[in-house]
Computed example of a mutant assay.
Amino acid sequence: MLETQNGLRKPTIYESFFYFTLSLLINAIGNGLTVATNMGSSMWTASAANIAYDFNFSISWVLIIYGGSQIFINILLTRKIDLPRIVGNIIFISFFGPFVGIFKQLFLDLGFASLSLPAKICFDIIGICFVAIAISIYQRLNLILHPGDEMTNILRFQYFKGNANLAQWTNFSIPVIVIICLSLIFKQIVAVNVGTAVALFFQGALINYADQLIFPKLKHRL
């Protein structure tokens, strides 16, 4: 919803398209940065990066498969099959996975992997912040969501009384378990570093700040 002098109103089609497209772009850039610098990705992306690395898969395909599993979890959490939501989730992950792969390769081609350690950490944290901003925008728009972020929204407002931090930590518990299991089996780990810790402990707070600072007139449509 958008705040106006006369109260709240629904975003127009053009406004919805603008907010959604911008958030998708910001999210893909942020995740691409974190994977390219290898200084730590948000938990789901880090988990996907480890699966891709250990099994020699494309990270784009892993992210798409993850999205399908998150849709199933959301059905369990809401105890209903919401077909328009599911179609929206599928549309989102169909664009999101390939976009992350494109931006990851772009940043690798630009030499981000060869930057100094402080520079890589800086860009990685910027990537984490970009992801939080993107999540904030499209969660408030609540039109088409990535199923993982819809999971956070469901947990936040249906289970944890609006607490973004608790919802995010609960969401992250699944990829944390996957990363731990893979590291024990393959004795190696990628995309887990400073940025992962930042995402794990602060992404919920960053989303809260973005709610207030980035397009503050865009309010949650529940």
Rank of each mutant, 00 (worst) to 15 (best):
A164R: 07
G111E: 12
V178P: 02
Y138I: 08
L110S: 11
S114I: 06
C129E: 06
C129N: 07
L77F: 13
K161N: 15
S173H: 09
S136D: 05
F107N: 00
L141D: 04
P84C: 07
L108T: 10
S136V: 00
S94E: 12
K104I: 07
K120P: 00
N163C: 13
T170L: 11
A119I: 04
G101D: 11
L77Q: 03
I144V: 13
N89V: 04
L182M: 13
F92A: 03
S173M: 11
R140L: 04
D124C: 15
L166E: 11
L106C: 07
N56K: 12
N56V: 05
L108W: 08
A167G: 09
Y159E: 04
F123E: 03
F157W: 13
F99V: 00
V131G: 03
K104M: 12
S60K: 04
N89P: 06
Q139G: 05
L141A: 06
L108H: 05
N74G: 12
L155Q: 01
C122I: 02
N56S: 12
L155K: 00
K104W: 10
G148W: 08
W169G: 06
F103H: 02
W169E: 10
I133R: 01
S58A: 10
P84Q: 06
W61S: 13
F107Y: 10
P118K: 13
W61F: 14
I179C: 07
I154Q: 09
I133G: 01
Q70E: 07
G88M: 11
I121L: 06
G97P: 05
R156I: 00
N89Y: 14
E150I: 00
D82T: 07
L155R: 03
N153R: 06
I154P: 04
F55S: 02
I71F: 09
T78H: 02
D109A: 12
F112I: 08
A119H: 05
S114K: 13
M151H: 07
F55P: 04
T170E: 03
A119N: 02
F95A: 09
A119T: 03
L143K: 08
F57E: 10
D124Q: 05
T170R: 08
L106V: 11
A132E: 00
F55C: 06
I154S: 09
N142H: 15
C129L: 11
S94K: 11
N74S: 11
A119S: 07
P84L: 00
V178E: 04
G127R: 00
K104V: 01
V87G: 05
Q105W: 09
F103P: 07
A132R: 08
Y159H: 14
L141Q: 03
V176F: 13
I126P: 01
F92D: 06
F107G: 02
